[in-house]
């Protein structure tokens, strides 16, 4: 058992370093989409709900986990959708007005 926890902690530490490296390069301009994007990623707790419901006994446990799965799904689906909406608004040349007038 001890080795499992150590493996998990090793993964935890490495993930922290990767996270710090990748995220510190994101410019201020994109901080809101970054936050809602990472928000969607922590919706991964949904998986925890799926795994836990498999061995859950009793009405209360199952109820708690169905709510947890619903919460996680809101987090994932809503988070990625709203991030996509925001990011698609960042455009470089939104000047078709002048071009259209020329045509």
């Amino acid at each position: 058992m001890a080795s499992t926890i150590l493996t998990n902690l090793a993964i935890l530490v490495l993930a922290a370093f990767v996270g710090f490296q990748v995220i510190s390069k994101v410019p201020n301009t994109l901080h809101t989409p970054l936050m809602s994007g990472t928000n969607a990623i922590h919706g991964i707790v949904l998986l925890g709900g799926l795994v836990a419901i498999a061995h859950a006994d009793g009405f209360l446990s199952r109820l708690l986990l169905v709510i947890a799965i619903a919460f996680g799904t809101i987090n994932v689906v809503g988070g990625f959708l709203v991030t996509d909406r925001m990011l698609s608004m960042f455009k470089k040349k939104p000047e078709p007005v002048a071009e259209d007038a020329d045509r």
């Binding site: 902690l9 993964i11 995220i23 936050m35």
Partner: peptide
């Protein structure tokens, strides 16, 4: 989420949760 991942022994939760933890901290 990362802590829940350790409890459930689920790599996906650990990695994704920790990346978000790092991002939020920054």
């Amino acid at each position: 989420a990362a802590a829940a991942g350790i409890a459930l022994d689920n790599y996906a939760l650990i990695v994704a949760g920790m990346i978000v933890g790092a991002s939020g901290t920054i």
